[in-house]
Amino acid sequence: MGAAAAGAGSPPAAAAASRLIDYAAHQIPAHHIRAAGYAGVVNYVSLSRPGTSFGAKPITRPYAESLARAGLVIVSNYQYGKPGGSAPSDFTRGFAGGVADARTAWQLHTAAGGGRSAPVFFSIDEDISRDTWSSVALQWFRGINSVLGVQRTGIYAGIDACHWAAVDGVIGNSRTPGRVWAWQTKAWSGNRIHPNAVLYQRVVATASNPGPLVGGYEVDVNDVLAQDCGQWNLHP
């Protein structure tokens, strides 16, 4: 998944065995990520919610450049609100909210040096029903699509919402055949992995189930399921 292979136009065959980490609290130095054996990061292109101050939200250009220099890849994710947080879940904000969130995400993504054709994964960080998807979340994604287009839109969610997003045509396609911009979390997925996802969040750090430490900070861990999982260096 390294920059050299991407520059040559041929993603390495080992990509499917790679792992990425995601985290919000701190900008973990690149050398710690490399030393821990990870291929890169999923990092936020969103701001911290009111009353919070996450060091890794949003990703900055100097930090992104330090990761790239170390041969690490970057995938963009947007999440501002959270269930029970100081801002409501983003997907509840409707079409207009999707438009606003997409504009913010793209401004932060490009300011940090993100690829112009790279996707942004937008988060549904809770378990939702099919009715909630169809009546609420889908409208948010349509708003996102109106700004970014379907091909630059991805989803982070449990397996069902990933499936609905793919079926309803609001997320784009990976260059890896048969894969779509679905970053699936193990939460709300019942030990199932969607056959078309590009990333699978295998370790979700919680108080009762801590994640591994990288550079002294707790992280989530994601399996890379496709050579093209939306990393910036494949989507200049």
Rank of each mutant, 00 (worst) to 15 (best):
M1Y: 06
A5Q: 10
P11D: 09
P12M: 07
A15I: 13
A15S: 12
L20F: 11
D22K: 06
Y23C: 14
Y23L: 15
A24L: 12
H31Q: 15
I33V: 08
I33W: 00
A35P: 13
G40I: 01
Y44T: 11
L47Y: 04
S48R: 05
R49N: 05
G51K: 12
G55E: 08
G55Q: 09
G55N: 05
K57M: 12
R61C: 04
L72Q: 00
N77M: 15
N77T: 13
G81C: 06
G81L: 03
P83C: 06
G84M: 02
A87I: 00
T92V: 02
T92L: 07
A96K: 08
G97C: 10
G98M: 02
D101Q: 02
A102V: 04
R103I: 00
Q107R: 15
L108H: 10
T110R: 15
S117R: 13
S117I: 02
S123V: 08
S123F: 01
I128S: 00
D131Y: 13
D131A: 12
S135Y: 14
Q139A: 00
W140F: 03
F141A: 01
R142L: 03
R142V: 01
S146Q: 10
Q151E: 04
R152Y: 03
T153H: 07
Y156F: 09
A157S: 12
I159T: 04
W164Y: 10
A166E: 11
V167G: 07
D168E: 06
D168P: 05
D168K: 08
N173S: 14
S174M: 08
S174Y: 07
R175S: 11
P177F: 01
P177R: 03
W181P: 04
A187W: 12
W188Q: 01
S189F: 04
R192W: 04
I193R: 10
V198N: 05
V198L: 09
V198A: 11
L199C: 09
Y200I: 14
Q201M: 02
V203D: 11
V204P: 07
A207C: 14
S208M: 14
N209Y: 08
P210Q: 12
G211C: 06
L213H: 13
V214C: 05
G215Y: 13
E218R: 14
D220L: 02
V224M: 04
D228S: 02
C229A: 07
C229Q: 01
L234R: 11
H235R: 08
H235W: 07
H235I: 00
